[in-house]
Design a binder for these strands. Structure first.
Length: 537
DNA sequence: GTAGGGTTAG
């Protein structure tokens, strides 16, 4: 609070006089306004606000705009909005900040309304206005409104800067249909604009156009950290984790820009998908080495990586060290222990979370219920389900019912599982029937298995895996004919079935082995070692 | 006087 202690008395209002002798001398700002710019949190802004009121400085419209801006930078949108409402004739600066604030406050539709009000007021939008409004359009996937903004820019003959250029591309690439417009906008701007190209790369990646993105990335003259980060994140999102990790390694080796937090987070996510523990550990060590603060985001990504790579203890260490834990962090650690079958730890963490004042959401309950299911805790599952509905007012989704069917089914309580399915408020989906089918195969219940199978086929094209499961069930129950029929069906329709995959990591290289196949490059050597009794399958 | 691209739980 050093800033506040040093605050000048209200009489400073008099210093707000422009020096009349020379315009070259910088304008002396009232100290209160200087402090306003230095504020970094809500408390400080509020106190300077009080000073502005007392000193009468707030009566000057530009100062009210500055205060509004400060509330926006500390994300206090409610306060920003009340300042805005008191300005009788807001200028473009005030509008821009309020529009931005509404986007920050997750109300992009309100920022579009405000933009219209700005136009009605007869004000002329500038590049800042366009940047913010286009961002709102992107968030809403409002291509129609975005196009109107674009038309206005062209009609008004505004000279757009790199930010507006990039925002236009971002807006057009928020929908597959207008991706071509994004390409045209990029082509219409002659200079190299890294910002704009980054936008198009992430646009391509969000629409699954991985190759186009990579081509653009490879041809870029000036790649910045965001370019690498967008490409790595895009690979991960499109299920190409090996490529993501490969690109991260390339970045570390050849690129002059160093990875930022988002790059590390995306790369950790790739490690989690691949089970690449050594790589993940390396990234952890690297983050420590460069002195990166383990933020909630980075910490959460680390926990998730350790949990998915089979090292929940390391994940738990990271979790315990995190000074601030949000709902996602709790969710990651709880599902981590759920994956590892440690249901008791999940229950304990759930209680800690509630005691910490964090309110569970539906995803937390999916994790808890799946923990119950894997550990066979039927009564606990019922208890949490009841608690979710009656204490937390969360309406159970089809995923929750799926967990319950799985829980009852695995425990062999198939009659209850069937009863639950019949009482569902919505139409059971393939996850529900699939869970029942799996349980029926486990407990040799042919009647209910048949029922699940029938529903699954009615629900549309079924995966090869489901047919395979059904086939196994019928075969086990002695229904040879049906089993043969299903096997034939899989073969004739060329239905793919996924096989169990296992990964091992040796010297940082991830090797995958598919059950029942021989396709590893070092197969002969491995086979020889096995023959010699050096390794065991 | 204002701006950004990238991220984590089933």
């Amino acid at each position: 609070m050093a800033i506040i202690a040093a605050l000048a008395p209200p009489s400073l209002a008099n210093q707000n006089k422009l020096p009349s002798f020379s315009s070259k001398i910088p304008v002396r700002m009232p100290t209160t306004l200087v402090f306003l710019q230095m504020c970094s949190n809500f408390q400080e802004v509020r106190q300077v606000h009080a000073q502005l009121v007392v000193s009468g400085l707030l009566d000057r419209p530009p100062n009210a705009g500055r205060l509004l801006q400060s509330y926006v930078t500390v994300s206090q949108i409610y306060h920003a909005s009340s300042v805005f409402d008191r300005i009788s004739c807001p200028d473009v600066f005030a509008y821009n900040n309020m529009i931005r604030g509404l986007i920050l406050g997750k109300c992009p539709n309100n920022s579009l309304l405000l933009y219209n009000k700005l136009l009605l007021d007869g004000l002329k939008p500038d590049n800042y206005t366009y940047t913010f409004v286009l961002k709102a359009c992107s968030q809403l996937s409002a291509i129609f409104e975005g196009r109107q903004v674009h038309c206005r820019i062209v009609k008004a003959g505004t000279a757009i800067d790199t930010h507006v250029h990039s925002s236009l591309i971002h807006m057009y690439s928020s929908s597959m249909d207008s991706l071509v417009c994004a390409e045209q906008v990029l082509a219409g701007f002659p200079e190299e604009n890294t910002l704009a190209k980054n936008s198009l790369i992430s646009g391509y990646l969000s629409q699954g156009e991985v190759e186009k993105a990579r081509e653009m990335f490879d041809n870029m003259l000036e790649k910045d950290d965001a370019s690498w980060s967008a490409m790595i994140a895009g690979y991960t999102k499109n299920g190409m984790s090996a490529e993501a990790l490969g690109l991260f390694q390339k970045m570390m080796m050849i690129s002059e820009v160093s990875p930022n937090e988002a790059t590390l987070v995306s790369s950790l996510s790739a490690c989690a998908h691949l089970g690449a523990l050594d790589q993940g550990k390396w990234i952890h060590a690297y983050a420590d080495k460069i002195g990166a603060k383990i933020s909630v985001t980075l910490g959460t990504a680390l926990i998730d990586m350790y949990a998915k790579c089979g090292s929940i203890e390391h994940g738990y260490e990271v979790f315990k060290k995190m000074p601030h834990k949000d709902l996602v962090a709790w969710g990651v650690i709880i599902s981590g222990f759920a994956i590892h079958g440690q249901a008791e730890k999940c229950f304990e963490l759930f209680d800690d979370m509630v005691a910490n004042g964090t309110y569970p959401n539906e995803i937390i309950f999916v994790a808890i219920l799946s923990a119950c299911s894997h550990a066979g805790y039927v009564e606990m599952g019922y208890q949490y389900f009841y608690q979710m509905v009656h204490e937390y007012g969360i309406r159970p989704s089809i995923e929750h019912y799926g967990c319950m069917v799985d829980l009852l089914g695995r425990a062999g309580r198939l009659a209850e599982a069937e009863e639950l399915i019949m009482s569902l408020p919505e139409k059971p989906n393939s996850v529900i029937w699939g869970a029942l089918l799996g349980a029926c195969r486990m407990h040799n219940d042919l009647r209910r298995g048949n029922l699940a199978f029938k529903h699954l086929t009615e629900l549309g094209p079924m995966s090869g895996d489901r047919y395979k499961l059904a086939g196994l069930m019928f075969a086990k129950a002695g229904e040879k004919e049906t089993a043969t029929k299903i096997r034939k069906l899989i073969r004739e329709n060329d239905l793919e079935t996924t096989r169990g995959l296992s990964f091992i990591e040796i010297d940082g290289v991830v090797h995958d082995f598919e059950a029942g196949t021989i396709n590893h490059s070092k197969y002969n050597e491995i086979y020889k070692m096995w023959g010699e009794g050096l390794i065991d399958f």
